[in-house]
Every structure is written in C-alpha cells, then in structure tokens.
C-alpha cells in the first residue's frame, strides 16, 4: 500500500474550515430534527395508548408509514416529489423561496422519520407501567388527561431514558443522509476533502473521530442523567 501521508491537510485552509462548518451543520440538523422528533413522537406514542380507536389507528398508520420506507427515499420524496404535488407557487417557494431549502427539508424529513421511532419508545414506556396505575388514577377522579400528565408520563419518560438516548445517537448518525440532498455536513465535507486532495485516509479519520467524540460525550452525559432519574427497583425497558 503506497500512500502519501499528509495529516497537515486537516489544519490547512480551506479544509479546516470545511470540517468545522460540516460539523456545525451535523449538530444543527440533528438538534433541529430531534426537537421535532421528540415532540411529535411523544404525541403519536401517547395517541397509540389512548382508548380512542380513531386516534390509535391514525398513530399506527403514521408509525408504519414512516418506519417502512428507507430514510434516503423519504429524503428524496420530500425534496423532489413533495414540491411537485403543491400548487405551482407554493412548490416554487418550497424549492427555492424558503430559507435554506436543503437544510429545512433535511431537518423536517429526519424529524418526521425519527418521530415514528420515538413514538414506539414512548408507547412501550407507557405500556410497561401497567393498567393498574391508570385505573387508580381514574378511580381517584382524575380526568384521562390528568392521568397522563401526573401519573403515566412522569414515570414513562424516566423509564425510556436509555432507549431515547440511543434514538438521539441514531438521529445524529442519520443526519449524514442529508448529504444526498446537498447539506454539506461532516461526512459530505470529509468526502469533498478526499476528492480535492486525495487524502481520503486523513479526511475520513477526522470525520470518524468527530462522530466518536460526540457519541462518547452523549453517552457519558446520559449515563449520569440515567443514574439521577432511574426509578429504584425498576428495570428500564425499551421497544425493539
């Protein structure tokens, strides 16, 4: 294997700047998508545990729809197909008019996709508490909304901290799929450096190290959080 090592390429301009901007995009896309995934996923997950047949069915359809189409295909659907389905003016706006079309599309797509996975975790968390607590709440005269707010959810979220952590790490890794519609995040920049300089080994190592650092920090942080919020005597459960 003959290869001209040149680690210096990573600190030379403009490549250093490419990497930092790529890393920033990775973080921004992941966090934006996570906010959407967490809030929507919670709503869908709760809907799947309610007594209403209609709500349950809608939520189930959502989860099955978004889970069974590859993320990359969803990315293309939102970016290429969705604007075609809108009236012409609105379609043009989505394509070019709205601020940062690639970023916005990627974050929304990633968020909607991950929401289906978060929903499954939330549902598993609520179901693992058991019918007894729900009945006890209702028997005390709480409304169903109050049962969720004061009885079920506080326990459910504490139980599902570990699986939610891994969902967050998944969203963070999946943010690389955004490169297919032109968001220049970490992986895309590493690839671009390889194409410009032929120093693929150095470029990909830099990207790998960045991903590993963030993963490790999140895991350490969440291990601390898990310790603080875990419920004594309860083994945490996650949906698969």
């Amino acid at each position: 294997m003959n290869y001209n090592w040149d680690w210096g390429v990573l600190v030379r301009e403009p490549y250093l700047e490419w990497l930092t901007s790529g890393f920033t995009w990775t973080i921004v896309v992941s966090l934006t998508a996570w906010v959407l995934a967490f809030s929507l996923g919670s709503v869908i997950g709760i809907m799947r545990t309610t007594n209403s047949n209609l709500l349950r069915r809608i939520a189930t359809c959502y989860v099955e729809l978004f889970r069974n189409i590859p993320l990359l295909v969803q990315m293309f659907l939102w970016y290429f197909v969705f604007p075609e389905l809108l009236p012409q003016d609105a379609g043009m706006w989505v394509k070019r008019g709205m601020p940062m079309p690639e970023f916005t599309t990627a974050a929304i797509c990633l968020g909607l996709y991950t929401a289906s996975r978060v929903a499954e975790q939330v549902r598993a968390g609520i179901n693992s508490i058991g019918q007894g607590q729900r009945n006890a709440g209702l028997a005390m005269g709480l409304t169903p909304a109050q049962v969720y707010r004061y009885v079920l959810l506080p326990v459910a979220y504490r139980i599902i901290v570990p699986p939610l952590t891994s969902e967050f790490l998944t969203i963070f890794k999946n943010s690389s799929v955004a490169l297919t519609i032109g968001v220049l995040e970490t992986t895309a920049q590493a690839r671009q450096i390889e194409e410009y300089t032929f120093q693929g080994f150095e470029a990909f190592t830099a990207a790998t190290v960045l991903y590993i650092i963030v993963t490790s920090i999140v895991m350490l942080l969440m291990r601390f959080v898990e310790g603080r919020v875990s419920i004594p005597g309860m083994i945490s459960l996650g949906a698969k």
Binding site: L169, N174, T187, T208, Y211
Partner: peptide, 24 residues
C-alpha cells in the same frame, strides 16, 4: 462500539476508498 458510533454512509465511503488501496 467503534462501528456503532459511525454513520453507515461514512463507513461506505471509508471502504469505497480503502479497499482498492489495500488490495492495490
């Protein structure tokens, strides 16, 4: 742990670049 902290796309890029280099 190493492979689980990397995005699949990055792994694909890695080997797409690496395998021809290793085999020459």
């Amino acid at each position: 742990n190493f492979f689980r902290s990397m995005p699949l796309i990055l792994v694909i890029f890695w080997f797409y670049f690496l395998v021809p280099h290793i085999l020459g």
